[in-house]
Simulated assay, not measured.
Amino acid sequence: MSFTETLRRENNDIFEAIFNHRFVDGIGKGDLPHDSIAHYIKADYEYLNAFMHIYGIGISKSTNRKDIEYFNEQVGFILNSETHPHMNFCDVIGVGYDELHGYPLPPTADHYVKHMMYHAQMGGLGEILAAMLPCPWTYLEIGNHLMKKYQPTPNDTFYQWIKFYANEEFETLSNAMRQRLDELADQASETERQRMKDAFRKSCQLELKFWEMAYSCEEWPQGEGVNTK
């Protein structure tokens, strides 16, 4: 069993909880509160900006052109392709994409970004990839899960979102990250492998919490009587 196969088995509980989350299931049903969708886009746009910065740290720690090329390609994918599922959400709620940019990260998303930044700064490439992998991997499986469970057609509300993540291009992206992580894990010490496992587990947990953050429209707490204007 490869390192990433072990990671998937050890974190199956979190993957299943993600598949059954009310936001994720709402995508399949085509029924989500518009405020929750807007909150998701605001947070995910800034999250993906941070994701690209972490890819940049990966480039700075790369010792060969193959890894540099990989990280560079992933930045390009986010910039040029991963806006498409956001646009599906925007079309459903009737809000322009630009109107949902520039908002501060809610607490869970802020924690998630700083968690990945910590591992990017403190660890090597294996640790960086372990912290980042749950994002594309869970989305790939969400897309496949919803496609199988609901068998959406182009007339369904979130068909374009589901189709984007349940396709060969996105599977190739996830598998490439898995393959490189397996290679790095094979060369790592037990201590380094455990740090990779910890980073991966926490990112899985934060993926689950990200969906709940979006559905509940999570905000930073304010003290009673504080003027926030």
Rank of each mutant, 00 (worst) to 15 (best):
E169I: 04
I14H: 01
V226A: 12
E171F: 00
D44C: 06
S81P: 03
V113N: 02
Q194Y: 13
E219M: 08
V75T: 09
G76W: 07
M132T: 02
T172D: 13
Y103V: 01
Q179C: 09
M147V: 03
T228Q: 10
K29A: 09
L7I: 03
D198R: 08
S36T: 10
K148W: 05
E5C: 03
M52S: 11
H53E: 13
Q222L: 13
N72P: 00
Q222Y: 10
E218D: 11
L129G: 00
Q121S: 12
N20A: 15
A185S: 13
F210S: 01
M196P: 00
S189F: 15
A38I: 08
H86Y: 07
Y45K: 09
P107E: 07
G223N: 13
H111P: 01
Q151E: 10
P154Q: 05
E183D: 14
W211D: 02
P33K: 10
L184C: 06
Y159H: 11
T6P: 01
M132S: 05
E99S: 14
R201M: 03
L184E: 08
P136L: 10
F200A: 01
R178I: 04
K114E: 11
Q179A: 15
M1T: 11
T228M: 12
T6E: 14
I142H: 04
M52F: 06
D67Q: 14
E46S: 12
